[in-house]
Every structure is written in structure tokens, then in C-alpha cells.
């Protein structure tokens, strides 16, 4: 694999969950949870994936880790097309790709000890360890900031933050290359969220990990991400370097999300008015045509309801899917000029 070949490449990936009705399970529609998204993740980087609840973030994570099979599109991991690979053929590849789950209360089997949970990867993958599984597990527990003495404890004896550390320890057991973290801190107290995010950052440096970190607001992924992708109703609407995205967000939806992020600097806060989105997120069963955001967008024009804006590159890797982007570099509209000026 060459240097700049991506570790993970997703092309036009779709997942439609059929909606059936009646005794004979007639399909009456489909939940378009993920509706044609493309992105790449490069070795050593962290991609943040942000969007409101229900926009398809978890589905994306579960497709990439092949807990789900895509309806269409392609998933290429380490140069191999895994889109429709059988579970048997995927098994060895799974060592390189792990997932951290959203709910630390549901992701640990209450009947197993911490030792059994963190040792499971070795058992399932049949991996031999130098000094036995127990030693390996205890080393990993230390790595994530738990005590090796927790080996025989049960999950219910731990707090949410500690449980999430146990979950992280399990994903690290097989020394994966890519870790998909599905809202790793959203179930935790705000006071311990930073600790867990810091742990993820430290582990990345130490173990040379590549992350896809899913979150429902922009503030969580701000410090950890190198690039950020914003999702809306099963689509990626904007993807850019962290710096670019946070300093000059282009998509109106990203701007709306950004205005919800608390700003520490009071001066900046005063300058920036909060954008309130009208209405609710439409149902993915029946998404609005063309630009899916047009039902809530304050810049929407006729064309937005008729022509779907493609995800197009604007400047230096900054991609956005909008007919009238904000902070646009070329041909600034009167409005965006006023805003930047």
C-alpha cells in the first residue's frame, strides 16, 4: 500500500432499511438511513463525523465495520473491497478494524468479568499471547487507565466512564489499525467526557491508530479531529480540514450547527448570532427531494428544490454540497461578503 492510499475508502455507500407491511411482508418503502456517501480516511488521521440524531451516523459506522451490509456502493479497507465480503472472510480483517460503542451500559455483557470481556478478542480470534491472556489483558487495562486488579470485577461495579474505558480496552486488544468510535462520550457525564477524549488522543499517539469519531455536535470532535464530515439525513453535506471547517464553514447546515457550539470567547460570542433552524429533521423514510436541507434552510431558492447540489470541492480539499455556500471564496455573493467583511 502506497503512502497516500487511504486506509478506508467509502464510495457512494447506501443503506436502505426496507419497511414492510402486513402478513406477507410486502415492502412499502425504505428508510434511507445512509443514501450515497463517499469519504476517505488516511492512516494516522482522525475523521470526525457529525450530525443530528437519526442522520445515519451509527449506520455508517456499522456499515464500515460490516455489522451491516450496504445496499449499494463500495467499502474498501486496506485496499480490499469488503462491501459484500462473507463474515468468514471478514474474520481475519476484523483484527484491524474495531468499534467503540455509544452506550457503555449495553456494550459490556453484565454476566462477564472485565477479564473475560477484554480477553474475548484473543479467544474469538484465536490469538496467542506471549505471557498468557491474563497478562495481556492486565497490560491493556493499565494502558486505558484502569487497574489490573479490576480483572475479576463485573461491569456493574464500574461508573460510566470506567465502563467506556473497558470498552476501549476491548477494542485495543488486537492492536487494530482503524477504530470507529460511535459517540464514545455522549452517554457520559460532561465532567468525564474530556478525560475519555484525552485518553483516545493519547492512545492514538502511542499505538499509531486511525480514528473515525462520530458525534452529534461539533464541539466534541473539535480537538480530536484532523478532518470533519457533516452529515444530514443520510448524506454528507460538507467535509473539510478541521481548521477550515471551524473557521469558514460553508454549508448553511454546518453554520447552524456551529452556532449551537458554545464559544468561550465572549467577544466572538457577541458577534455571532445564533442560527435557529426552523422545523424538525424530516423523516429518512421520505426525505425532501434535491437538497435535503431546503425545508429548513434560510437561503433556499427554487433551484434547491429541483436540483440536488453535488458534493463538490471548493478550495483545498473543502467539499460542500450547496448551491449557495457561505464563506465561498470565488464569486462572493453580497450576503457572504457582508458576513466575512
Amino acid at each position: 500500500m502506497s503512502e497516500n492510499e487511504p486506509l478506508l475508502s467509502v464510495q457512494n455507500m447506501e443503506k436502505h432499511f426496507p419497511v414492510t407491511k402486513g402478513l406477507f411482508k410486502r415492502q412499502v418503502g425504505a428508510v434511507k438511513a445512509v443514501d450515497g456517501i463517499s469519504f476517505e480516511v488516511f492512516k494516522g488521521e482522525t475523521l470526525g463525523l457529525v450530525g443530528e440524531s437519526g442522520c445515519g451516523k451509527s449506520t455508517t459506522g456499522r456499515l464500515v465495520t460490516r455489522l451491516l451490509e450496504p445496499t449499494a456502493g463500495k467499502i474498501v479497507f486496506e485496499g480490499e473491497d469488503i462491501s459484500h465480503m462473507s463474515q468468514g472472510r471478514l474474520r481475519p480483517l476484523r483484527r484491524d478494524m474495531q468499534m467503540i460503542f455509544q452506550d457503555p451500559y449495553s456494550s459490556l455483557n453484565p454476566r462477564h468479568t472485565v477479564g473475560a470481556i477484554v480477553g474475548a478478542p484473543f479467544r474469538i480470534q484465536g490469538v496467542k499471547t506471549e505471557n498468557g491472556v491474563k497478562k495481556a489483558v492486565q497490560d491493556i487495562l493499565e494502558l486505558v487507565g484502569l487497574s489490573p486488579e479490576h480483572y475479576n470485577r463485573y461491569p456493574h461495579e464500574f461508573s460510566g466512564g470506567q465502563r467506556q474505558r473497558i470498552g476501549i480496552a476491548r477494542t485495543l486488544a488486537l492492536k487494530p489499525k482503524l477504530i470507529i468510535a460511535d459517540e464514545p462520550v455522549s452517554a457520559l457525564d460532561v465532567s468525564i467526557q474530556a478525560q475519555v477524549v484525552n485518553l483516545l488522543e493519547d492512545l492514538q499517539k502511542e499505538l499509531d491508530l486511525t480514528y473515525v469519531v462520530i458525534a452529534h455536535d461539533l464541539s466534541v470532535v473539535r480537538h480530536i479531529s484532523d478532518r470533519v464530515a457533516v452529515m444530514y439525513l443520510g448524506k454528507i453535506v460538507e467535509i473539510a480540514d478541521r481548521k477550515r471547517l471551524y473557521s469558514a464553514p460553508m454549508h448553511p447546515y454546518t453554520n447552524a450547527l456551529m452556532s449551537a457550539v458554545p464559544v468561550p470567547d465572549p467577544k466572538v460570542r457577541r458577534d455571532r448570532e445564533r442560527i435557529r433552524l426552523k422545523g424538525d429533521v424530516p423523516s429518512p423514510l421520505n426525505p425532501p427531494p434535491a437538497c435535503r436541507f431546503h425545508t429548513r434552510c434560510w437561503k433556499a431558492q427554487e433551484i434547491c428544490k429541483k436540483v440536488e447540489p453535488p458534493l463538490a470541492e471548493m478550495v483545498g480539499g473543502h467539499q460542500v454540497a450547496c448551491h449557495f455556500p457561505e464563506n465561498a471564496p470565488e464569486v462572493p455573493t453580497a450576503e457572504s461578503a457582508a458576513k466575512t467583511g
Binding site: L67, L90, R95, F101, Q102, S106, S107, R170, L174
Partner: peptide, 11 residues
């Protein structure tokens, strides 16, 4: 439950 998904994602 997510621990079943966790086991699946471990193969």
C-alpha cells in the same frame, strides 16, 4: 444489545 455487536465485530 451492543455487546452482541461487539462480539460480532470481533468476528
Amino acid at each position: 444489545r451492543e455487546f452482541v455487536d461487539a462480539a460480532k465485530s470481533l468476528g
